[in-house]
Amino acid sequence: MGVGSDSRPVAVVGAGVMGTGIATTVLGSGRPVVLVDNDPAALDRATHTIPLQLRHARLMNAAPADGQPGRLVTATAVRELGGVSAVIEAVSEHLTVKTAILVEVAGAVGADVPLVTNTSGIPIDELAGALPRPHQLVGTHFMNPAYLIDLVEVIRGPRTGEATVAALMALLAGLRRRAVQVRDSPGFVTSRLLHPMLNDAARLVGDGIATADEVDALMQGCLGHRTGPLRTADLIGLDNLVDSLAALYERTGEQRYRPCEQLTAKVRDGHLGRKSGRGFYDYTEVLS
């Protein structure tokens, strides 16, 4: 399963915010990518967004400035994944959706191809249980924007094979990404710490204690948070955040993970953060 210097394409399944960012990361390293999504409109948006993200990554020294980017191919069906060296699944944070996609992918690729699920909180072993070859599955948690943030949380499930982990670590090294490996559990490390803070920040705004800008200013100026929790929530996507919190709440029963009304109301209203033009902040000028 050695994929570090492999010239075969890396498949990314899911052309949303995370899938597009991960595809940009791989392309920036010079590796070809097959980006799969059953929505042609999502693929069209990704093909327009990726060149902008590549330029941004180079400006921020997150991708080689003089390197030739890999070739991007798009597809609308998983069955077109023959010949890839690894598959990174980056669909929505729902167990049934991820399981269905991973089962389909497992049937389309060989036993030596690592299956990488990008998840912010669903335990890897829950997903592996549905697969014909559970040893093929390993977890990652790329941070958004994936093409700028070089640290990746890697999660090894109880049934993940040694060769699968080694292949993923080689792939990440080839992408100039640092990996921190943690044990399998709901939310792993980053989501268990970050998401309840974002939930509490939203709750403070909902309770009228402070505005979003005031909460972020205090967290930046007093506690050194780089962007502030609510700008971070907008970047993650408030719908993604609600899904991740709900998954954590379902698996732990801890009230701090229960999505607060301020978040769920914004999602109901379609205010999902940067990607929709409005969340805790207004981004309409950025998107225009």
Rank of each mutant, 00 (worst) to 15 (best):
M1G: 07
V3M: 08
S5V: 14
R8F: 05
R8Q: 11
V12C: 03
V17S: 08
G19V: 09
A23K: 02
T24F: 05
T25M: 07
G28Y: 01
G30K: 06
P32A: 11
L43M: 08
P51T: 03
Q53P: 00
L54E: 10
L54Q: 14
N61S: 15
D66T: 12
G67P: 04
P69C: 05
V73K: 12
T74H: 03
T76A: 09
R79M: 03
R79K: 11
G83E: 05
G83K: 05
S85H: 00
A90T: 04
V91Q: 10
E93A: 09
H94M: 08
V97W: 00
T99Q: 14
T99I: 04
I101K: 01
I101L: 15
V105F: 03
A106F: 03
V109Y: 06
D112K: 07
V116H: 06
N118A: 11
S120M: 09
D125N: 13
E126S: 12
L127W: 09
A130N: 05
P134C: 07
H135N: 09
Q136D: 03
L137R: 05
L137I: 13
M143N: 06
L148F: 07
L148I: 12
E153R: 10
V154I: 02
R156D: 01
R156C: 09
R159A: 15
R159I: 00
T160Q: 05
T160A: 10
E162Y: 00
A163Q: 13
A163M: 02
L168P: 06
L168C: 09
A170C: 00
L172W: 08
Q181S: 11
V182W: 02
V182P: 03
P186W: 07
P186R: 09
R192T: 13
L194W: 12
P196H: 06
P196S: 08
N199W: 08
L204R: 11
V205S: 02
G208I: 11
I209W: 03
T211K: 02
V215C: 09
A217G: 01
A217E: 13
L218R: 13
M219R: 00
M219L: 15
Q220P: 01
G221L: 12
L223Y: 15
G228F: 03
P229L: 10
A233D: 04
N240L: 07
L245M: 10
A246V: 00
A247Y: 00
R251Y: 05
T252Q: 12
A265H: 14
V267C: 11
G270T: 12
G270Q: 12
L272A: 05
G277C: 10
G277Y: 13
R278S: 12
Y281M: 10
D282S: 07
Y283F: 15
T284H: 15
L287G: 07
S288H: 14
